[in-house]
Design a protein around this nucleic acid. Structure first.
Lengths: 194, 194
DNA sequence: GTCTATACACAGATAGAC
DNA sequence: GTCTATCTGTGTATAGAC
């Protein structure tokens, strides 16, 4: 038998989701989360920079994926193709179980200003990473900005629909549909003309 | 000149900018800010929800402006014209003195994760308010989303250039230029085609 | 190298006095 | 309204246990 239970981050996430669901985010203390996970407060704050980070662990991995996919893409891909490759990779990282976790996190995020702020910031950091990566491949900075924004927006809107869809539903077509709407809107004369 | 101005919010902003500049944001305590402004910590937290709010007071006013301008606009304005009206109104709220304050806040924001998060959230809230207002006037939700994003992006990018421009420079043409770039980029075939 | 124990600074809330 | 005082909870730091 191992001396310590494995995967403390995962245990803390489970404990946090359970307690936040029972008591709400603000009324749950870091010590309570740590205790339910069989750890102490000090260990929690060694593993996570703050309480909100328990729910938003994925940021660094997502940014890495974005950078890697764009960096490794063949030279002849245009902006739209790069975006498709990035969205393919991001979608591929999600397993079906995350439908329920995603729905729970979305509900919590809506309930707490502190969590909303953290969620918005995560999205911004991912968008910035994609925009920066695209800028290094495309000649037009503004086009990189539009593409990055539309891609992340489609990813999030598709994900939101996925979390409330039937269990086992496919995420990829939902994201593709959102992106198609945004592309059509960008092409609209009312956007392009003053 | 008028006698001593009691205005506690203004005194706290001055004190905070001075202390943040001297010591950095993280190393400055709320008690220090209150003391320099001739108040107590308890009073500071009655006037501002948290330490960061001292620097980001303008959010509610900006959101109000966005809603008011779109709500009061003539029925026959299209999306692009609504955006122009909103940007006109936002630009009109800035006085030349804000060039220097804006530069100072931008520098502080770059230096602190907590401030960056707050700044990103403010921008998101303004974008959401504009998007929601445009949705009530346009038929296409995706078009409202694109327009709102481009408008706020142009506003911020223009403002950033303004803070480092020659004193007395005009803000409006800088914003207009950024918006033109984004519009041209959105019209590019590489955005519209898969 | 991972966890615990403990002490600590500071944010922010709250209640009562003036 | 603002101050004094006090309290809870976040997050840090350190030293040591396994």
């Amino acid at each position: 038998m191992a001396r310590w239970e494995p995967d403390p981050r995962g245990r803390l996430l489970d404990a946090a989701l359970a307690l936040f669901g029972e008591q709400g985010y603000d009324r749950t203390t870091a010590a309570q989360i740590a205790e339910r996970a069989g750890l102490t407060k000090a260990t929690l704050f060694r593993l996570f920079a703050d309480k909100r980070e328990i729910l938003f662990q994925g940021q660094a991995a997502t940014v890495d994926t974005v950078r890697r996919v764009v960096g490794d893409a063949p030279d002849d891909l245009d902006g739209a193709a790069l975006v498709e490759a990035v969205l393919d990779a991001l979608v591929a990282e999600h397993v079906p179980e995350q439908q329920a976790v995603g729905a729970a996190i979305a509900e919590l995020t809506a309930s707490s200003e502190a969590l909303r702020e953290r969620a918005v910031h995560k999205r911004f950091v991912i968008t910035e990473a994609l925009e920066h990566a695209l800028r290094s491949r495309l000649q037009d900075d503004a086009r990189a900005a539009v593409l990055a924004w539309a891609a992340v927006r489609a990813y999030y809107d598709g994900f939101d629909r996925w979390t409330v869809a039937a269990p086992g539903a496919d995420l990829r077509p939902l994201v593709a549909e959102e992106l198609a709407h945004l592309r059509a809107a960008a092409a609209d004369p009312a956007v392009r003309t003053g």
